[in-house]
Nucleic acid binder design. Sequence first.
DNA 1: CGAGTGAGTTGCATGATGAGACTTAGGGAG
DNA 2: CTCCCTAAGTCTCATCATGCAACTCACTCG
Lengths: 159, 159
Amino acid sequence: MLNRTYPGQACSIARALEVVGERWTLLILRDTYRGTRRFDDLQASLGVTRGVLASRLSRLVEEGLLERRPYQANPARFEYIPTAKGRELWPVLMHLLLWGDRYYPAPNGPPQVAEHTGCGGRLTPQLTCDQCGRQLGPGDVTLRPPAKQARSRRAAQLL
Amino acid sequence: MLNRTYPGQACSIARALEVVGERWTLLILRDTYRGTRRFDDLQASLGVTRGVLASRLSRLVEEGLLERRPYQANPARFEYIPTAKGRELWPVLMHLLLWGDRYYPAPNGPPQVAEHTGCGGRLTPQLTCDQCGRQLGPGDVTLRPPAKQARSRRAAQLL
DNA sequence: CGAGTGAGTTGCATGATGAGACTTAGGGAG
DNA sequence: CTCCCTAAGTCTCATCATGCAACTCACTCG
């Protein structure tokens, strides 16, 4: 979305979007997951302008989502590999994929299906609770200040 | 990110981003989850320009993520309520929140914590398999054409 | 009557993007 | 040696989107 900040937003969602919310950024990341990791390959695969691609890549490297690693010297050539920080955005991409498949299926031919490689199950489009394991929705979650005053104050309910 | 399309992208992620990838769109959606649902409230909460807000809202209504519902007549006044389709993007927002909290914690004071209202557990930042229930990462998922030839062809592995 | 509120629309200056040519450094063919 | 190719960028220019701020419109309240 922007190069700019979302000023005055205390929310982590806004801070996350300052890094990965610009046009093309998430698609570049997706391509690096899939193994498209060189400048010209990314450019061809995405159809993004070379200038924009260069600027997104350098931002992603700066922020530590990608590592710019030489794969040959003479002449020096580089590839962009997702770091742990970069890979942790994978769930975001997968949820977008599931949502897109559901509401905007591919015009010609059905969408790709994401399946668990060994077992054949599908990705669950749900978030779960790490204690009780139940599936959570907007109504099940409370945002509050962490630790310390543990249970004392109740903050804004999400939805 | 864009108003424009990501031409030539067959992927559902790109199609999803065509709808919700523009600057401000996801933050507007987040606010409607939280109960901020009127034009002026959204404008004040986000600090977005009135013009941009108007254009994003009308797009979201067009695409069926929000419903523009009058809450009074004379003078006619409206609020924007998330539809089921809009609410299903909640996991995307939550993963962004978890990721942002982890890598870009709020400068003053610790981040908000999302907890399961009844049980006190945290949101799992992981996707799971709907059959075996195991947590999945980029390496565990295969994208392939759906149904029909069920298991016959194996397509691009995600990472 | 005059001020206030909510939901927009309009106009201008600035910033970001798309299209496409140019650069740099080395490799290979003839 | 010269010409052409590849990879990874950089540069320029026209167009599009955004931010800022004022204006409109319809109705209500004091």
